[in-house]
Simulated scan of single mutants.
Amino acid sequence: MHRIPRRVLAHLVAAVLLVAGSQAAAAGKLKIVATFSVLADMAANVAGEHGEVSALVAPGRDVHNFTPGEADLALAGSADLILWNGLDLETWFPRFYHHFHGVPQVTVSLGVEAVPLDRDAYDGKANPHAWMSPADARRYIDTIRDALMQRDPVHAGNYAANARTYAARLEALAAPLRKTVAGLPEGRLWLATSEDSLAYLARDFGLKELYLRTLDTEDEAIAPQRVEAVVATIRAERIPVIYSESPGSPDPARDVAQQAGIRYGGALPVDSLSGPDGPAPTYLDLMRVTMDTIAQGLAQP
């Protein structure tokens, strides 16, 4: 395979940036690049017709372990604004962003009260999945709104109106789970999952967490002692259901369900949107599927 000389590659990237930038300018739209599909969908809803939004990490791909390529350099370099989650989700992003100091970037988790990961191996690092909290997602939406208003004050009113509508739709999706949780006895307020990716959602709804592993990025197999501890807690607390997260394998949660004699409640989309024909092609779909699936599982005895 022939390698492209660095000087030639630089000219190619520059040409791509020039064409992409010219197209966005001609359309009169902000060119927004988000690190992954959840943020891209949020930004598209707030920007509306005045934004052109792309994601570096495509739906179905792992944002934690993403490795940017040449096309990603070209895409981000042509942006008017780059959005990233922060909270140690995109550990690759700071080095990646060194290429684009002239492009504004915004950390959308700004203002979120971080929930720490509770394993010594993570040394108090934040749980990165704050978008799974309806309350914190509202902060994301407001941060995106403010960033767009600053970059494009002419359409500030549009961005503000879009953000209000979008946030209201998100809040409405939480109603079934709030109703279910309100009707449960104290001892049933458990959320058992394969990964600690729902800490913010659990906090919002007053649920206690139980999980097999801290992050799905861990390479090692789940220790048998951890599985035994989770099964023992399920039995002691009479937890009726356990869920898995997607992307990710459902097998660990299924195995625990079989060992503990409880129901496997299904996969909860977390880190990525699905394709257009999947269960969660938008962020609101992702939250609806996740909250409705939890509500249905907890409501059953």
Rank of each mutant, 00 (worst) to 15 (best):
S194H: 00
L191Q: 08
A182M: 02
T193C: 11
P185C: 00
P185E: 01
L170Q: 08
L173T: 08
R169L: 06
A168S: 10
R178L: 10
L191G: 05
T180A: 05
S194I: 02
E218R: 00
L210F: 03
E195N: 03
L184K: 06
G157A: 03
Y211R: 01
Y200E: 10
E186V: 14
D204V: 12
T180K: 00
K179V: 12
L212V: 11
L201Q: 07
T193E: 10
S197P: 10
L207H: 00
T180W: 03
T193F: 04
L170A: 11
E209S: 10
L215M: 08
P176V: 05
D204C: 14
A182P: 11
L212C: 07
D152P: 13
A168E: 13
D219F: 11
E171G: 09
L191R: 05
E209T: 12
L210E: 09
L177V: 01
W190F: 15
Y211P: 06
A182E: 06
A175S: 07
L215S: 00
F205K: 02
D152A: 13
T180L: 05
R169V: 12
G187C: 10
P176W: 02
H155V: 04
D142V: 06
A163K: 10
L215I: 04
L198K: 04
A202Q: 01
A174N: 11
A167M: 06
Y211K: 03
L173R: 12
A156H: 07
K208N: 09
R169K: 14
A163D: 15
P185N: 01
L170T: 12
A174G: 12
L191Y: 08
G206C: 13
L173M: 12
G183W: 01
L212Q: 05
A199Q: 10
T214E: 15
A182G: 12
R164M: 06
Y166W: 04
R203E: 14
P185V: 01
Q150A: 10
L201D: 05
A172F: 00
T165W: 00
V181P: 12
